[in-house]
Every structure is written in C-alpha cells, then in structure tokens.
Write a protein that binds this DNA or RNA. Sequence first.
DNA 1: GTTTGGCACTCAGTGCGGAGGAGTGCTAAC
DNA 2: GTTAGCACTCCTCCGCACTGAGTGCCAAAC
Lengths: 360, 360
Amino acid sequence: MPNYRQESNGDELESRLREVLREVVRIYVSSGEPVSSRTLAKSGAFQLSPASLRNVMADLEDLGYLHQPHTSAGRVPTDRGYRFFINHLMRSRRLTSHEREVIDGEVAKIGELDDVMHMTSRLLSKLSDQVGLVFMPTLRHIAMRSIDLILVAERRLMVVIVATNGVVVNRVIEIDDVLTREEAEGIGRHLSAEFVGLTLAQIRERLVTLMREERARFDRMWRRTLAVGAGAVEELLPSEHEIWVEGASSILSKPEFASADGEAMRKVLRAFEEKEKLVQILNHCLGEEGLQVVVGSESPFTGSYNFALVATSYGMIQPAGLVAVIGPTRMEYSRVLPLVEYLGKALGRKIEESSGESVP
Amino acid sequence: MPNYRQESNGDELESRLREVLREVVRIYVSSGEPVSSRTLAKSGAFQLSPASLRNVMADLEDLGYLHQPHTSAGRVPTDRGYRFFINHLMRSRRLTSHEREVIDGEVAKIGELDDVMHMTSRLLSKLSDQVGLVFMPTLRHIAMRSIDLILVAERRLMVVIVATNGVVVNRVIEIDDVLTREEAEGIGRHLSAEFVGLTLAQIRERLVTLMREERARFDRMWRRTLAVGAGAVEELLPSEHEIWVEGASSILSKPEFASADGEAMRKVLRAFEEKEKLVQILNHCLGEEGLQVVVGSESPFTGSYNFALVATSYGMIQPAGLVAVIGPTRMEYSRVLPLVEYLGKALGRKIEESSGESVP
DNA sequence: GTTTGGCACTCAGTGCGGAGGAGTGCTAAC
DNA sequence: GTTAGCACTCCTCCGCACTGAGTGCCAAAC
C-alpha cells in the first residue's frame, strides 16, 4: 500500500465538507484559478446554491483546508487541503493503455545505465508535464557481483563493477605501477575472487585488514592487487550520488508562474540546476518504502515555492534509487501518482532483468 | 589565428566611425541599455559634443552598424555591428591569473570522461555567466586504440573502447550466445588484434568482408568473435553525439529578458533542453578550425532571439569535439573569446594526456 | 434548521489621459 | 567641421475612476 504522510483516519470531515473539498481541488487543479462558490455550483457536483457553498467553503477555510488569496477572490486548497485530498479523497486514475505502451516501449530499449536513467526522467517529465527526476544513491551499501579491470593507458585503469542490484558502474583510476594488459586482468581476477559479495564499505574494511597481513610483504602481485583495490575503493566511495533532472523548463509554463518575474523564475531553475539540495531531499525520501508525497511546506525545498514532490523507490531486491516528479502543489495527483508508481516498477524490473541471473 | 567569419579587410570604416562603434559596443555590452549621444560624450573617450556624436551615430546607422529601437531611444549595435567589432575592433582581454588557476585546478582533477565534460561546461558557464556547452561528436571517424569486453550478465557484455583521441567509451550490448568470463576475454583479445587502429566505419566494412571469408565457416570462436564485433559496432555507430549544457538559467538573468514574458523564457529554455537542434548547429561548426563566433541572424538557432555562439574545437591530434558558449549577442566578447579558447586547449590537453602513450 | 436570494462591501484588474523625460534631427551660429 | 539651441517624437510612469468578480451576512422561504 502506498505510504503517504501519516494523518489520523479520514473520518474527521463530515461528508458534505469532504465532497466540497474534493471538488475544489479537482477544479483548481485543472483551471489553476481560485475557485468561487459560483464556479463550484455550476460544476454540477452539488444541488446547492452558491450561497450555501459559500458557507461550506467558509467552514473549510476555518478548518485550514482552504485559503483565500484576498477578500474578493475564490478559494485555493492549502497544503493541508492537498494532504487530506491525497490521503482520503483522491481516486487514482489508471494509466491509459497508450501511456503504458509508451513506457513499456521505451523501457524495452536496451542501453547503458546512463541512458536508461536519462530516458526515464525524460518520460516522467513528458508524461506528467512536470519536472522528472531519477536518483541513484552512492554504492556504499550495495554488494558487488563482479569486478573487472581494463587497461586504458599506461597508468590508468578502468574499473567496471556490477552490483547485485544490477547497476553497472565504471570509473577510470590512476595507478602508480606500470602494468601490462595481462597483469591488469590478473589483478582483476584476484580482486573479484577476494571481494565479490561485499559492499564497498565492507571491502574497504577488509582491505585494511588484508594490508596488515603478512602475506602482502612477500607477494608482489598481491601487494599490487591491494593497491589497486584501495585506489578503486577510494575513488568510488565518495562518488557522488547521481541524479538526472529533466524538463525543468516545463515548470515555467504553469499558470502560477505567469505573473512571476524573471528573478523568481531564475531562482527556481537554479534550484534544479544545483543538484546538491535535491540530493539531500531525495536521500531523505530514500528511507521510506513505497509511494511518497511531500506537499509544499512539509519540506524545506518544496516549501520555497509551493512545490510538491511525488517519489517512489525502484529496485526490487534492494532499493536502488528513486524516481520522482516535482511540480507545483497544484498538480494532477490522480495521474502523477500512478505514473510515478508504474515507472518506478518498470525501471526496477529493467535493472533486475538487465543484470540477469548470476554470472558463472 | 582565430578564424571568425570572413569579411573584407577592416579598413572600410574611417577611423572616427570605428572608434565610435567600438565605444558604443563597449558601453552597450556593459549597460544593456541603448547608448545615447550624451552617454557617449560623457564616457570620456572623445573630445566631441553630443551633437557631433549624433552625426557620427547617424552615419553608422545608415551603414547598418547601429540601430535605433525607436525615435527617442539611443542606439544599439546590429549583428553587423557586432561582427565588425569582433573582427576588427575588439581587444581580447587576457584571463586573470585567478581564472587560469581555477581552470587549471579543475582540469587537473581526474575523473571519468563524463565528469570532465560536465565540469568543463560548468566552468564555461560559471566564468562567462552564460550558457556553457561541450560537444562530443559520434565516434564514427575516430580510430580505436583498444577494445575490451566484460561479462556483465549471462547474455550481456560491456564493450570498452579507447579511441586514439583519448576518449573512452563503454556500452553494454546484448548477445545471443551464453559466454563464460574467459570466453568473453578471449573474444576481446581477438577483436583487439583484428580491429585496433581502424575507425568504427572501417571496422564495419571489414566485418562484412571477414564474414564472407571461408574461415568463419569452420572456426566457432571466430564466428562468435565476429558476431560480437558486429553487435558492438551496430550499437556504437548510431550512438548519439553527446552534449553537455550547463547554466541555461543564467540566460534569464540578462536584462534583455527582464521584460520578456514567461512564454518567451520557456521557449528559450526548451531550445536548450532539446539538444538535437544544438547538435545540428555544433556539427556545422565542427568543420571549421579555431575560434568561431556566430552572431545573431547568421545562424538559424542564434537568430531566434539574438543569441551569439562562441565556439572552438578541442583535441589536438584530431578534433575530438567542441566547447562553446551561448549568450545574448550583447556579451563580453573580449572576455568570452579568450575563455573559450583557453578552456578548449585545456580540455584538449587533458584528453590527450589522460590517454597517455600507446598501450603495450 | 437548512437553504436561498438579496445586498452592501472589498479589492484586483483595466483603460485612459496627462505629465515627465530622454533622445533625436535640424538649423544656425561659431 | 563643430556646437548650442530648439522643436519634435515617443516611451514610461502615475493617478484615477470604473468594472466585475467574489464574499459575508442577514432575513425570508422552505
């Protein structure tokens, strides 16, 4: 079951209020303009006059679910209103078969990890018309399935690591020794034999132990192996979380930005370009299981300009990372939530499958 | 010598006009506002009254170097004015030692190709306060220095190729056979022996010839090798040009956008997000040698919103790609040109050196 | 007691006109 | 050739009144 933010059971609002709140959210999300009692009456969802609806809306405002930008304006849901809507009122709309087809088709294409992530964030953005994000945290706590070395230049090795969650990472490191191609391959085999099945953090610990051992003093090959191993670990460990952000400009086409000045727009885009902050927030989400929604002021980032974040983890055996959508709080949750969920599953399956069964 | 766009010699403007044009460009670039005769007189560059300058400016307008947004406004350089300025009037300002230090420091950091490109585009953007671009074209015409295979899963191989220009590319391909690790390595050695020194395009041709040969009919290993080779080539050949774009949002902070509406901003950002068009333009620039400047209407892309592009190729032995800056035509060419040039050289050196001498 | 019509009130948005000001082109004097 | 003066243009800003959407409240109707 999706795990949104907790809130007491959903019975705390009498049915009349609930229906009005739902309708206000529905209309506001699709129009982008404050909802007036008259609009609400005309929507046909109620057999009530504007005047009656005004009373209900006033109640909802008192309870903190709606808000009036100014006296002579309609009403807009507050973060609290969205929260209640998401937790208790929303009816998820299933993805259309067309959407499923597009996703399945794109995901079926094979490609490098990088491309897959990129494509996924693109899909997220395109199908939700919001900002799409894919996040892959550091490898620190994921076990390695295989380790290979490739001689790229005289003192440069490419380390290729396949993790048990199917992620393939490669990185070029520099070494002190001059190696031949055969030596490099030999060292690779040694490393594999010694460290497969451990996480990077464990490998590092083990390296320290091994380096103290007697053996290293006498075996030249062994010493070299440890040196390369240490180099690789130090290079990979602090390796940044990777993050793919796509469609940031789609944010600007939202009506809430129509009146914003250039400075505000720039600020928002900067926030997406500087990915460190995003990483922070996503890292926080990574702890939780299942679908998560963070609305507006519930988080430091989203709070800044009434953004909402919809995220889910992907990866079946161990969560490998997150897929997410960021957009204005006024977003079509009933569409975005299933979309994020589906893409998360698709990406997870893709990664699992691409790693195949265990390697001989 | 930098190779800008050709234009007849620079003597076609009498000295008085030249000086005024230079000063107008200088002032406009730093202020962003149309330059009036009064501002020009106050700048101290001339011993002339506003009235005289008005005459000169009127001449420059007749000649098409300046333009008046409306009757009671000052003057702004036209594309033609910028062109003349860049070709004949500009005095490149040397990079400050601080800038050099920053660049050299960043470039010295080792990292994967991807990171290096990313960092370079970031530097370009940061130091020029414009949009920074790094472009790496397809591998089609670049010779391979080494080829390695790594078994990633039962039916998946990672192909790692080092090109003679120092670029390291890796990609996962799917194969029909089930291979052991040793077999994969063996096939890798075969491929290396056969194809090192050829370009991808040549490899493909050669594969066709080899497949027709008798030998393939009898040698199972050889057949497998060819199959894998063909798979890899087909996967790599159409592989897109890669492009790194950084700092798109900095465009929005330019005064020319202060009055622009959201729609215009969105359009511009979209242009940077959809990279295909950029690739087209950059591919065109790739033919030329040395520093290039394309101003405004001289190109279909830059024409759309008075953009200018400053580009140079990097890579010493063979041009490996381009580094470029895109910004409003009103940009500090005297700073941006040296910056692009320096970063292009730094990146080229970096790539050359990181590929080291030939591998045993 | 819930619903509804009526009514006064608030307030953002719009359109208009006039004042202000920046800048030019032209002409006549130096 | 250079410059001061002057009339003219046209953009920009400001204040103003007007409009219309929307509310809150009250009293009557159901």
